[in-house]
């Protein structure tokens, strides 16, 4: 196991706080950087993310070239608010409309590759309550300053907003510790060095993202890590300590659904790599139970495990980016 990786490729956000240096490097390399915020009903947090990134990384420092919001069909005012603060807002369904339509975070991230123009794409979850521009500059820093690094992942403490008032000092990361870390330990021990493989904050070069498939739902973070590792090895990956991220807590049932999809994504990759053989296929339903008037009722979540192919295989994409 390459245990040097943890030491060599793990950074702290403060190492990249000289934003002028990052801007100089960006200009020297003649590249553009796009920020993508995938949304679904994020009216409480989206404005703050856009405002802070625009103020700090577009007005004060020209590190970002565009902020793009890709929405899965919010029923609240997410899109209106995002648009009022100057982000480029798109409905996922309106992008590449000839293709079959799906709903999911991975779908939004994949379609963002078509919409954005940057050579580096930064993906941030849109529900970060304590957003700070370090979430972007610290993810971009290793990509700009180290030529071998092509993909950078964030990790942090995870206090959870409890009710309306107080913060629980620590918590979260349950799916990581109960699902992903055991799986990595069993099959890819090197990857256990990645502190929070499921964090929704990461950045990478377009040339990397365009060559890997994107599961449409929760499996996206797992698949990016596994596919990058398989194609280019661990050394192209870095991780940055972003220190603290406050987010909405999710109930155990929701985490169960997330785990179901992640397990499926993981097992598929094991099979593809010849590391495991499934005698029969997967079922596509996650069955949970709830207590109703007539006793226990099944609560079924369906996931067909659909994955978008590497976007470079899509003719419209090749057409749009042929000059790049």
């Amino acid at each position: 196991m390459n245990s040097n990786w943890l030491k060599k490729n793990t950074f702290h956000h403060s190492e990249f706080k000289d934003i002028n240096r990052l801007v100089e490097e960006k200009e020297r390399k003649k590249i553009k950087i796009s920020l993508c915020l995938p949304t679904l009903n994020e009216e409480k947090t989206i404005a703050k993310e856009i405002i802070i990134m625009k103020s700090e990384l577009m007005s004060r420092y020209q590190l970002l070239d565009e902020i793009v919001v890709i929405d899965s069909g919010s029923t609240d005012r997410t899109m209106e608010i995002a648009s009022s603060y100057g982000a480029d807002v798109y409905k996922a369904d309106d992008i590449l409309p000839k293709l079959e339509k799906f709903k999911g975070k991975g779908e939004n991230l994949w379609k963002a590759l078509y919409i954005t123009t940057g050579d580096i794409i930064v993906y941030l979850d849109a529900d970060i309550k304590n957003i700070h521009h370090r979430f972007v500059y610290a993810l971009v820093g290793p990509l700009l300053l180290f030529d071998n690094i092509k993909y950078c992942k964030g990790f942090y403490d995870r206090p959870i907003a409890r009710g309306k008032k107080k913060l629980r000092p620590t918590g979260g990361g349950r799916v990581t510790e109960l699902v992903i870390r055991p799986l990595f330990s069993l099959f890819f021990p090197e990857l256990t060095q990645i502190m929070q493989p499921l964090s929704g904050e990461y950045a990478g070069y377009r040339e990397l993202f365009e060559k890997i498939p994107f599961p449409i739902g929760y499996g996206i973070e797992t698949s990016i890590i596994l596919d990058t590792y398989e194609k280019w090895g661990l050394d192209v990956i870095a991780q940055v300590d972003l220190e603290r991220r406050v987010h909405r807590n999710q109930d155990t049932k929701s985490l169960g659904k997330m785990s179901f999809v992640i397990l499926k994504t993981f097992c598929k990759r094991l099979e593809k790599l010849g590391m495991a053989e499934l005698k029969s296929g997967f079922f596509n339903e996650m069955i949970q139970y709830k207590l109703g008037k007539d006793g226990y009722q099944p609560d079924i979540y369906k996931d067909k495990g659909f994955e978008r192919p590497p976007i470079i295989e899509i003719p419209e994409y090749r057409e749009k980016f042929k000059a790049i």
């Binding site: 009216e43 409480k44 947090t45 404005a47 703050k48 405002i51 005012r77 209106e80 608010i81 009022s84 309550k129 304590n130 907003a161 309306k164 008032k165 107080k166 913060l167 406050v246």
Partner: peptide, 11 residues
């Protein structure tokens, strides 16, 4: 200090 000081910005 222990009160949630995270702000919500809307339109």
């Amino acid at each position: 200090k222990d009160i949630d000081h995270n702000y919500t910005v809307k339109k």
